[in-house]
Design a protein around this nucleic acid. Structure first.
Lengths: 347, 347
DNA sequence: TTGTAGGCGTTATCAG
DNA sequence: CTGATAACGCCTACAA
């Protein structure tokens, strides 16, 4: 089912890249100077209808596409917003960026997205790379950045958007929610629902750990029980969830009646493993996820999860940034988009 | 659980963006001209050790970050590769781009990623936007592009990478696999395995439809049975899979013994719905997915699926492109990365 | 090893 | 309404 094919000689293509038509050439054809072409595109009202028509005809004929590099250099505006996320294959992040990019695009901006993993050092390197393209703003995930990164951002003087978390001292604008509050809220939910022996299965990224640390502490202080926490090293997956529950049940000391997972994917794995072991959810074991992804409501049983409105987060981030562009001396501030525990049948 | 906070006046930040230190300023401090600074960065061997040290000290002191816009304009190389995918929240695509971007980054390139949905018209608009940033290459998903898009690409003279599909007449370089062959292979698999009444649940994008059209035709011609095809309008989801199976079973004429789905997510939904209805997989109903995502092997029962090595596709695309950069008169050609039916327990 | 001159394709600012 | 002219910050010769 695998074959390699060689085809069609490269006949029609220009051998060397004709690096694109310039405004000057368009102007020559339309009988005006380059400047007039520039105006025709940036502010047509300042050009007579006739010349405008001639210019457009020339653009058509030549297939002219303006050179944004030159434009950005001259105008000191790249219309580029840099975005750096831990993972671009995790829908948790891309769903935010999708909305953010869409909103920014409506205002003429393009988003340069890169992934950098969870290490602040790698983020720092990525920031440096992105900064060299002179983005008009930069979006970072989380509030943990190296001091060198902070210095570079300040030096560059670009607006900074921190998402997915909340801090009293944002670099500039922060749009997210409190992971501590989320952990605490889930703890209260569990206690109120009458669970007696909650446990955790969590990924090892800092934000997830923070949620679960607070969760465990809150439960322990109220229920006076030990809360076992399984921390997975790999990226969250169904397999990880299944392994997590196995580990949990293998610990002879613990007989959990509920598992709080750091993502819906892990929760799905826990549900599956429970089912395989003949445990009924939620009677024998309750499960709570995090993120409330689309599929959470479609699982069997439907998954109780912590909903974070990621689309709203992206839109709000864009909105705040656009506001910031218009008002360069805006105070740094944080926007809490909150979260919500969605109770379904799994807990 | 939602509170807005105003914090910290914007004290330390520069009110107006200091658009960054220039090489000229660094040079002034180091006692050399701008050109020497440029050389110190691009080819340190051409600068004496002493000056190099002074320059680096000056860079440190000023926090200089080279301006890639200016560099690109002057060198006619943006070190930017544009990538356009239908969806950036679908891991099917982002997993390819992740590897592609990673490999390109190792060679100094950054990837500008945008999503454009499944309509060629929207792709065309996105191509135009991206082209204005003068990417050194452009990656497109699929082989269906408007003629205007093709014209623009030719005019720009950029190397073009088409992924996720195969064609005898690629624009430039094509890295993917044959969806027709995949549909046919699954049909043969089903027939060989003795299934008598296959059915389909598919998303409505062109590539998925192509697979299922070929699948249905192949099965019908060999088995002389009608193959019902449920085409879902929304994006693939577990809910869609569940609805798909419902629709299938509601058709009084059809009693499928196998469902071929256009994605693993849909297959998961079908499995779930089957389970809810008391149908045992694969005894009462077999299920085949597509894509072989990580979770396929962890489902209950483990999902039979069509594996596409997306990481390999991304790496190979980067590799081909890098080769192309070194050899501008390369023939246009297609690379088949193939696929593989991974048989597990669901079928 | 270092410097000078010219140019990359725009936008901004003044004139006319 | 249109045109000169000077940036923008860097790279590529070519010269010293």
């Amino acid at each position: 089912m695998n074959k390699s094919a060689q085809q069609r000689p490269n006949s029609g293509r220009p051998q060397r890249a004709s690096r694109g038509v310039t405004m000057a050439e368009v102007g020559r054809i339309a009988g005006v100077t380059q400047v007039t072409v520039s105006r025709a595109l940036s502010d047509p009202s300042k050009v007579s209808a006739e010349t405008l028509a001639r210019i457009h005809r020339a653009i058509e004929a030549t297939g002219f596409v303006p050179n944004a590099l030159a434009g950005s250099l001259a105008s000191q505006k790249s219309m580029l917003v840099s975005a750096i996320v831990p993972s671009m294959t995790n829908i948790i992040y891309t769903s935010v960026i999708k909305e953010f990019a869409s909103a920014m695009r409506d205002s003429g901006y393009e988003v340069l997205l890169s992934e950098c993993g969870f290490a602040p050092q790698d983020e720092e390197a990525m920031i440096a790379r992105h900064l060299s393209r002179r983005p008009d703003a930069i979006l970072l995930t989380g509030i943990n950045h190296t001091s060198q990164a902070r210095r570079m951002l300040l030096a560059a003087g670009v607006p900074v958007l921190e998402i997915w978390d909340l801090t009293p001292s944002p670099i500039d604008i922060c749009v997210g929610f409190s992971h501590q509050d989320a952990g605490r809220a889930v703890a209260e939910f569990c206690i109120d629902a009458g669970y007696k022996a909650p446990a955790c299965v969590t990924a090892s990224d800092e934000r997830a750990l923070r949620r679960h640390t607070v969760f465990a502490a809150a439960v322990e202080s109220r229920l006076k029980v030990n809360v076992p926490v399984i921390t997975l090293q790999e990226q969250a997956s169904i397999a990880g969830g299944r392994a997590g529950l196995r580990d949990l049940l293998d610990q002879p000391s613990s007989k959990p009646d509920l598992v709080f997972c750091s993502s819906d994917l892990l929760a799905q794995g826990v549900q599956l493993e429970a089912q395989v072991r003949g445990l009924t959810v939620p009677q024998d074991l309750a499960v709570i996820g995090f993120g409330d992804q689309d599929f959470a409501k479609d699982l069997v049983p439907p998954l109780t999860s912590v909903q974070v409105d990621r689309a709203e987060m992206g839109k709000r981030a864009a909105q705040e940034l656009l506001l910031r562009f218009g008002q360069r001396d805006m105070q740094s501030h944080a926007v809490d988009v909150g979260f919500k525990i969605v109770r379904r049948q799994s807990a």
